[in-house]
Write a protein that binds this DNA or RNA. Sequence first.
DNA 1: GAAGGTTTGTCTAATGTCTGTAGAGAGTCT
DNA 2: AGACTCTCTACAGACATTAGACAAACCTTC
Lengths: 322, 322
Amino acid sequence: MYTIKQAASRSGVSVPLLRAWERRYRIVEPARTAAGYRLYDEAALERLRTMRRLVDAGWTPSTAAEAILAGQQIDLPVTPTPATGSTVPGPAAGLPRDDLVEAFVAAAMAFDADRLERVLDRMFATGSFEAAADAHLLPALVALGDAWASGRLNIAAEHAASHAALRRLAVAYQAASRAAPADRVVLVGMPPTARHELGALAFSTAARRAGLPVLYLGPDLPVADWVATARRTAARAAVIGVVTGADVRPAVDVAEGLEAELPELPILFGGRSAQRAGAAFAARRESGAAAAGARRSRPPEVLPEPLVEAVAALEAVIRTEG
Amino acid sequence: MYTIKQAASRSGVSVPLLRAWERRYRIVEPARTAAGYRLYDEAALERLRTMRRLVDAGWTPSTAAEAILAGQQIDLPVTPTPATGSTVPGPAAGLPRDDLVEAFVAAAMAFDADRLERVLDRMFATGSFEAAADAHLLPALVALGDAWASGRLNIAAEHAASHAALRRLAVAYQAASRAAPADRVVLVGMPPTARHELGALAFSTAARRAGLPVLYLGPDLPVADWVATARRTAARAAVIGVVTGADVRPAVDVAEGLEAELPELPILFGGRSAQRAGAAFAARRESGAAAAGARRSRPPEVLPEPLVEAVAALEAVIRTEG
DNA sequence: GAAGGTTTGTCTAATGTCTGTAGAGAGTCT
DNA sequence: AGACTCTCTACAGACATTAGACAAACCTTC
């Protein structure tokens, strides 16, 4: 049940008009609370939306109300606008790495969205997705973060540029094969509080392009949800992104939570601080194993840096697990 | 067992509010010590967290409490009355709206990435980007949020589904025209602390498809950076996304900051709580204008709901500004 | 075309309800 | 002693109610 304000927001009819329609046409007759407040149910909302559509389509409100109350079948003319064609300018490859990274940061500082897009075009024109991401895009994002940290870049510029990169990754992800099953997937995501998701997304894309069934979980995921999801999807492996130093501890917490509940699940760390997380996890496991008698032969995997190698490492883990 | 202070800290509900909820709705009835101190157990905390989530998601406290007390299992607004009769004449084309929204949430709950993609395919097959987003995708995201707030969906599933939607929006954004100049752009973004960016991204995409020069700034942008960016890019207008009730105050802060520094800049609010932000901003401006003698003839614009109309409103503002 | 009536969205005024927060005064715990 | 808790009362601001008014748009009718 919705209040009049919620009903207005969900039906696209303003609050005064909602009352006017009720008073004049009795198009809805909402229930009332003890205090007299109107309470709309979903059926009422649907009638209001229908009325809204009819009026927008040129019907007079009175006839629209009449038709709805009579329960007539109404055919609305659908007029979909044709999709605009994509206009990708021809790439002009050739600039060396540093120039592309520099150009990316410079375009971000200038708030020049168009130039940003052209730089990204050039990045991805240099070769495969994996090569472009490794050589240009991911370094550019690191440079972007540095520029922000050093105060040369304001947050708005950082956001705008990050989002441009995110969109490129999203397009690549979407373009990759998609014969993923519903379970026995590889989970990829970030530990709680971690926010820098673009590396994890690039890795997910590369893995998907290699045909691996990846379920991308995004940033800032609590331990309990990692565990629940891994159990629910009968995950084949979990890849935890570790970018900043602050991500190390939450990442280890996630790994411990997963291992406690699902001892057979392979756990892998990826990202710039993966090494540190792997070491911390191994250390804590050692001390815990001595006390509890638990043991796992497999060392915690730390994914190597270039995307193709990281994907290969993940494939190897999955293959040995069966 | 927790004291009231611990319960407040662990549930995200302040101490006085905790007592108010107990007194008004009997949402919890904690045990008491011999001296009368409240003692909360884990089940009570869980109810309080659920209540907290529902209220944050826009439910009124009274209805949230009612739903929780009515046996926690909150029925989806779509299927409480399976066959309400053929009361409402809907457009006959393709699958009705609710089925696609339902299918989206169901696929999210099942962690079935492939099915999620197929549902998104169907959504975008129904018509133009704008129509599909208005009719299916944005309602589906609202339903997703409700499902999470009511505890039927874990965060991982919500993240995965949100990200799938984000990728679609990103692809559409990228496919849109891109003859954007470096300055005199329209800024679109979210106020500080605001996170639900998908509506703003959908709007940016629609605006871009209409040929408007949009710079998308993303979520959670501090006031100072809004101002700096608007000044730096000589922005033509600023569109502030306002989704939840908690976004209203930061959005008004952003608007005030912008207006103080750039009195000529048109400021627009968009999103589900845009109306509230517009009203709050107008009210605060009235009181401020009386005191400071400042004055602006232009009212704060509140963008209407359907994307095409929102874009048209933005175009009108830009045109009148020259 | 002008005059006059109807339709329709929006607005105002006066009033009431809902909800988060605050304070006073007294008791409890460590 | 100081931090914490209790109950009860109070209050501001957001949100709701009704009733009536009004201007623009549209339709008659002359």
